[in-house]
Write a protein that binds this DNA or RNA. Structure first.
Ligand SMILES: [Mn+2]
Ligand SMILES: [Mn+2]
Ligand SMILES: [Mn+2]
Ligand SMILES: [Mn+2]
Lengths: 233, 233
DNA sequence: TTTGATAATTAGGCTAGCCTAATGCCCTGT
DNA sequence: ACAGGGCATTAGGCTAGCCTAATTATCAAA
C-alpha cells in the first residue's frame, strides 16, 4: 500500500476565512448567524452572503438552515479559531515588538492573518511567550484550537456601586480605542461605578487612582468587565 | 478652491504586484521582458501574460511593444521597487528577528509582501537598523525607491586563480540555499578559484579558512562575486 | 386568516485571473 | 522569396466574489 498523501486541506481563500470568522463571532453566544448580520459585519450585500453560504455548506464548513441562518461545523469552527489565533497573535506581536498602537493593530492584522504561515504565527507566539490575551483583552485560542470562554458584563450593565476589573474592550475602531486609552480605560484597570444617568445616559466611574471618568453608553457597551470584591478580589 | 484628495493610487492586486516584480527582474540588464519569460517566472500560461500585459499597459504601468516584449514605465518601476523593498525587508526581518533560516524566508515573504502596510515595513526596517542587503546579499531599495546597482560576476565566469568575495546568492530555492549554507558559501565569504573542469564542469574554490569546495556549474552560476585583490582588497 | 413588513434567496451581470485551442506574426535558413 | 518553427496573441471558457433588481419565505399584527 502506498503512502496516502495526508488530508488535502484545500486551503481557504481570504474571503472564506473572513466569512468563517464572522460566523464564529456571531454565533458565539449560541444560535444562528443571520445573512444580514454577516453582510453587515463584512460590509457586503446580503446576496453575496447567500451565495457564499451555499458554497460553504457544500464544502462542509457550515450548516445552513435556509431562511434561518448558519452555524459552523466542527471543521468550520477549527478553521475560524485558527484565523482568530492568527489575528490575535499578530495584534499582540505588532503591539509588543513593533511598537504599534493598540488602535492601529486591527486593520494590519486583518490583512496579514490571510498571508502568514502557521510557522510564522508560532514563531511570533514563541517570541512573545505564548500570550493568552491580545492587546484588547480578548483570549487567544491555543494552537490546538481551544479558546477560553468567560462571562463578562458590559460596563453599561454594571450596577451603580459595583467594583469591576475592565477585562476586554470589544471594539476595533482606531478612534474609539485611542480615546479609551487616553482615558486610561484599558484592560486590567480597576473601576468602581459611581453613578449612571437615566435614559441610556453615561456611566460615571472612578479609576483606582481616584480620577473619575464619564463614559457614554456607546462606549460603556464596549467595556467588558468582571465583578470584583471591594477589596480588590 | 477645495482640497484635492491627492493622487488616488488605485492600489494594485497581488497578481499585478507579482507581474511588475517579474518584469523588473527580467529587464534589469536592459531590454524587454518577453511574454514567455514572464510566464515561466510566474508559472502561468503565456496567454495569461498577454492578457495582463494589455491591462498593465492600459493603466500605464508598462510599455508593451507587441511581439517584442514589455518594459516598466517610471510608475511601474516605482511600484516594482516598492514591492522588492517589502520583500527584502521581510526576508531580513524574518531572518534576524524570528530565527528563520535563509532558505525558508523567500516563500513567506512572497505572500506577506502583498499584505503588509508601508508603515509595517518601515517599522521592521527601523527595528533592523535600515539594512542595505537582504539575507541573500541582494540590495534593498530605499523607501524613496533607489536601488544599488553593482556589477557582479558569477563564480562560473570567474577565471582560475582569481580571488573574489561572494556577494550575493541569486536563488530562492530552499534546498539549494540550505546546501550552500552547509558548504559555507554565503554572502561575505572570500573565495579563491583553484581550478575549473572543462565542459561546464565544476569550479573548485578555496575558502579563506583553507577548505576547498567543488561547486557544480548550476550552483556556480548562482554565486555572484566581486573581484578582490589577493591581499583582501 | 389575511396582510404587510422584513429578511432571504434567486436571477442575471460584472471584473479579475486563470486556462486551452486556434490563429497570427516574425525571423531564420534555404 | 518563402517555408517553417517558435513565440505571441486572440478566441472562448471557467471560477471566485462581488453587485442590483426581482422574487419568495416568514412571522407578527390586524
Ligand atoms: Mn482585531
Ligand atoms: Mn481578514
Ligand atoms: Mn526572495
Ligand atoms: Mn509575491
Amino acid at each position: 500500500m502506498n503512502a496516502v498523501p495526508k488530508a488535502p486541506e484545500p486551503q481557504l481563500t481570504r474571503s472564506v476565512e473572513d466569512y468563517l470568522k464572522s460566523v464564529f463571532h456571531l454565533t458565539n453566544q449560541g444560535g444562528f448567524a443571520t445573512t444580514s448580520d454577516i453582510a453587515a459585519m463584512l460590509e457586503v450585500a446580503p446576496p453575496s452572503v447567500s451565495g457564499m453560504m451555499k458554497r460553504l455548506s457544500e464544502t462542509g464548513l457550515i450548516e445552513h438552515v435556509p431562511y434561518r441562518g448558519v452555524q459552523l461545523t466542527p471543521q468550520g469552527r477549527r478553521a475560524a479559531l485558527q484565523m482568530i489565533r492568527r489575528h490575535r497573535i499578530l495584534e499582540s506581536y505588532l503591539t509588543s515588538k513593533l511598537n504599534y498602537d493598540w488602535g492601529d493593530v486591527h486593520d494590519e492584522a486583518e490583512r496579514l492573518e490571510h498571508a502568514v504561515s502557521e510557522k510564522l504565527i508560532e514563531r511570533m507566539a514563541d517570541a512573545l511567550g505564548e500570550p493568552r490575551y491580545d492587546p484588547h483583552g480578548a483570549p487567544i485560542p491555543t494552537a490546538a484550537g481551544e479558546i477560553e470562554e468567560t462571562e463578562l458584563a458590559t460596563l453599561a450593565d454594571t450596577e451603580v456601586g459595583a467594583s469591576v476589573i475592565l477585562r476586554e474592550v470589544g471594539d476595533e475602531h482606531p478612534d474609539r480605542l485611542h480615546y479609551l486609552a487616553e482615558q486610561g480605560l484599558t484592560p486590567g484597570v480597576r473601576l468602581t461605578v459611581v453613578d449612571r444617568q437615566p435614559f441610556n445616559g453615561p456611566t460615571i466611574v472612578r479609576l483606582n487612582e481616584g480620577m473619575t471618568r464619564v463614559v457614554g453608553q456607546e462606549l460603556a457597551l464596549l467595556l467588558l468587565c468582571r465583578p470584583v470584591g471591594s477589596d480588590g478580589e
